[in-house]
Design a protein around this nucleic acid. Sequence first.
DNA 1: TGCTATGTAGGAATCATTCCTGTCTAGCAA
DNA 2: TTGCTAGACAGGAATGATTCCTACATAGCA
Lengths: 150, 150
Amino acid sequence: MKLDPQDIEARFRRHAVRVTRQRAAIYAALVETTSHPSADDLYRLVKRQQPMMSRNTVYYTLGVLRNAGLIREVNVGHDMARYDGNVSLHHHLICLGCGQILDVLDEDLNRLQLSNGQARGFDVLRHRVEFHGYCVSCQQAERNVSPRRK
Amino acid sequence: MKLDPQDIEARFRRHAVRVTRQRAAIYAALVETTSHPSADDLYRLVKRQQPMMSRNTVYYTLGVLRNAGLIREVNVGHDMARYDGNVSLHHHLICLGCGQILDVLDEDLNRLQLSNGQARGFDVLRHRVEFHGYCVSCQQAERNVSPRRK
DNA sequence: TGCTATGTAGGAATCATTCCTGTCTAGCAA
DNA sequence: TTGCTAGACAGGAATGATTCCTACATAGCA
Ligand SMILES: [Mn+2]
Ligand SMILES: [Mn+2]
Ligand SMILES: [Zn+2]
Ligand SMILES: [Zn+2]
């Protein structure tokens, strides 16, 4: 989704986040993609427009935006952290081959909850569902290497 | 669950894993706890019985056992990897305060699957459900610091 | 317009994990 | 039972994503 600078500024102010050129660029990049980029992906992307951008600013800004609730962090295994500009409730479908992350929008998944017995007194704030498998092109790539499915 | 050395040896042989003193100790520690320890937790634990044990051996062994399907890796955020000696299908309840991980056994969660439209051609091999919240003692600890819920 | 709390750049530090290397040994076959 | 060899082990070095530190810059406010 394309965002103009006024929208970004308004969102930042609504969440008490100071408006800077660096933050606007990082946030815009994140909202305008569906690829769930890593901090370093964003660093390289934004550095093209702002060559002085430091890697530290990307990490710091992602922390600020996350704490403000403007973005989400998505964790896949122990690879680099991935970020999501879409904060509406949704889940993910992850390719074990190439690492791509696709959104899964499913109200039934959003409504999952533990029974009282299962929750063991926890105050459960949220849940996460991940589906893991191989995307179409990774399935084909594997077929080229070994004749049959692993 | 308590395992005797013969059981461990039999399981290793069934999965074509070479039997060594180090591996048996690491695997036994993992199966006999429900705490989902990290590699370093296991290192410190097993080092008490085998002072020569190297941290590298723990990592190497955990990799071997994981590839053999004898243990699972559980990832919580980007903290250290956590390991699980229980490979039967189940999910997890995680405390955001102290990091403890409890098992969730629920056949309905085990059966979740994506519709064809949602799967986008993926070959989906498995899924994971995590519930995040605060355990009883972390809820109390927080109450001691600030008068009301965050 | 000036003050000050906050943000930024750049470099150093951290630390879980992986890599490397020289022994050692489990498992197999003669 | 013995000897061979692929694989395992210990210890230390290297890696790399992330965090920490510090001096300078600036957003937001009065
Ligand atoms: Mn998403
Ligand atoms: Mn478990
Ligand atoms: Zn793929
Ligand atoms: Zn807790």
